[in-house]
Design a protein around this nucleic acid. Structure first.
Lengths: 116, 116
DNA sequence: CTGGATCCACTTTGATACTG
DNA sequence: CAGTATCAAAGTGGATCCAG
């Protein structure tokens, strides 16, 4: 089989309880410090924020810039390569949006989360 | 905020240890019986196959057709609505494919899975 | 300020046996 | 054939404390 399915590969990069929201904020703000991400995502713990950022960094989606100063300052931003995710994220967002409407039509708007 | 990110919504539908491969086979074969899916995905247990199929069915991605006969016969197929996932899955596959190459360039081809 | 390290709770998945 | 039920194992996320 010369042609294999790599959907899972893409999923692996985006999946993780906090990765979408982290990416959302960094895409939107361009550059964010660790503490700013914490403030934007109140429920995340430092541990999770760190690990999710590290994974995104490993995949060259985000950049980690450390300022050699005290107190420490670290800025996260989307890499040029990472910006290539934009069309895919848009597609996923749009499909997700329309899917919520579809579920509404099928099951009614009960028991569907409106929050976010 | 009138415009919220629904990337997670899309992720929720596709995520699950076996969902991508299940969808892959049903998309490819059009119609598959429970036992045929088991054969195509040797490592999956009946329990997981059942639950993942149920979730996809709940989201109206696949159709479950039960033949009232003995021994039982159940066929799974992609719904018309589910076929709307094709562009998204293609995008994810293509991005995943190029991402593997990108990782190769960064880290070399060591420690990257070649199997699948 | 930006983490790392540990320990624990919860969730997800797997193994196995059983059933209409 | 196509599941369900039960229990065990593994994986994931959270709470807390420590550190440069």
């Amino acid at each position: 089989m010369p042609h294999e399915c790599k959907v899972e590969t893409a999923l692996d990069i985006l999946v993780g309880k906090w990765k979408p929201v982290i990416l959302f904020h960094i895409f939107q703000e361009e550059v964010l410090r660790f503490s700013e991400l914490q403030r934007l995502i109140p429920d995340i713990t430092k541990k999770m924020l760190t690990t999710q950022l590290r994974e995104l960094e490993y995949h060259d989606i985000i950049n980690r810039k450390v300022y050699a100063q005290v107190p420490p300052k670290v800025e996260y931003s989307i890499t040029d390569y990472g910006k290539g995710l934009t069309p895919l994220l848009d597609s996923m967002h749009n499909w997700g949006l329309s899917h919520l409407e579809h579920l509404d039509q099928i099951y009614g708007e009960s028991k569907l989360e409106k929050n976010n």
